[in-house]
């Protein structure tokens, strides 16, 4: 049974934003920290482009990878 709303995410949550920073490396560090603070563990940066004002970034937190046990399928129960 899907016990959390997060279990209804089919595969992953993408966070897209613009982070103010002074380098690509700093931008990467910040977005990964943001993902961690949001409770997303299985994370990766899909796209990141640094320009002077900061980074345009798309980070991804996988909730279900192929082959895992999908919360949205188990018992097919919906939250809310």
């Amino acid at each position: 049974m899907a016990e959390t709303a997060m279990a209804q995410v089919i595969d992953a949550i993408d966070i897209e934003t613009f982070v103010v920073c002074s380098s690509e490396a700093e931008g990467k560090k910040i977005i990964l920290q943001i993902m961690q603070e949001m409770g997303l563990k299985d994370t990766d940066i899909v796209f990141l482009q640094y320009t002077g004002p900061g980074v345009r970034v798309r980070a991804r937190g996988y909730i279900h990878r192929p082959g895992s046990h999908y919360g949205w399928l188990q018992g097919n129960k919906r939250v809310g």
Binding site: I10, D11, A12, D14, D44, I45, V46, F47, R60, Y62, R65, P66
Partner: peptide
């Protein structure tokens, strides 16, 4: 739109 991303599975969105 994940075509060029190779770090993980392609997502439905």
């Amino acid at each position: 739109s994940d075509e060029a991303y190779s770090g993980g599975p392609i997502v439905a969105a």
